[in-house]
Simulated assay, not measured.
Amino acid sequence: MVNLFTNEDVICIEGNVQRSGLKLGTVYSFLVDGMLIDTGTQCLESELIPIYERHSFDLVTLTHSHEDHSGLAPWIQKHRNVPIYVHPKGIHICAEHCPYPKYRQLTWGVRAAFDALPLGDIIQSRSQEWKVIYTPGHANDHVSFFHEQSGRLFSGDIFVTTRTKVIMDSESIPVIIYSIRTLLSFDFQSLFCAHSGYIQDGKSKLKQKLDYLENLSGEVVNLYEEGRSIDEITQMLFPKKYPIIAFSEGQWDSRHIITSIVGDR
């Protein structure tokens, strides 16, 4: 199911992925000033294509190459013939056909290969200049987009929620903390998150996430220095076993939060 609504002159395209009545996830794309930020997921292709056929845009910018953000890029490249930009570290990933595990294929669909161009420090839409901010931690090719005049920040997957409970084995909490600090140095108000949508008080919410992750990191380090094992710390801080842990065969796990913090010491 796909819904459209507008906030601050931004068309927010909300894609809800469901299987057998079970909601698997929500992912947003955004249309602003003739620029499409992220494309949505391939499994919602039949609902997203009519939207992209009737709206005008001159370029696509990807916050990162993950399939829930780039799933419609191959169709756009073939049928709309507009440039698609990603951080240079993501270009080779975009050029691969479906370079991700089976459970993600079942969730988001099968993304074909496409050709992407490298983002620089600035990207120009029709009438606005956007700062491209490198914000790794969730993905090595992750960026955020900031429009200084309007105070709008498009943060990809850096925010998502104030209290992180599980992460992928490729993610790093210390690097995410660094990226959040980087974003908080900018004078933004509203936040457009790829999984939570429009957040009017975005800066305060992102600050809440930073506080949570910094406090969590301190707690993990203290427990580790007391001699607790990784598994003991995980059980103490995250006793709940989330369904995605089994579904992803461990690629997502609360344990990865602990190991990323301990490994950074």
Results as ranks from 00 to 15, higher is better:
C94A: 12
A95Y: 06
A95W: 08
H97N: 13
H97S: 11
C98S: 14
C98H: 09
C98G: 10
C98P: 06
P99Y: 06
P99K: 06
Y100V: 03
Y100A: 06
Y100F: 14
P101F: 07
K102A: 14
K102I: 13
K102Y: 12
Y103L: 08
R104M: 14
R104Y: 10
R104L: 14
R104N: 09
Q105D: 05
Q105A: 10
Q105L: 06
L106T: 13
L106H: 15
T107K: 11
T107F: 12
T107S: 13
W108E: 03
W108D: 00
W108G: 01
W108I: 03
G109N: 02
G109T: 04
G109S: 01
G109H: 03
G109M: 04
G109V: 01
G109W: 06
G109A: 04
R111V: 02
R111N: 08
A112C: 06
A112G: 13
A113I: 02
A113Y: 01
A113D: 04
F114M: 00
F114G: 00
F114V: 00
L117R: 12
P118V: 02
P118L: 07
P118G: 01
G120Y: 07
G120I: 02
G120V: 05
D121E: 15
I122D: 07
I122M: 15
I122R: 15
I122S: 10
I123C: 05
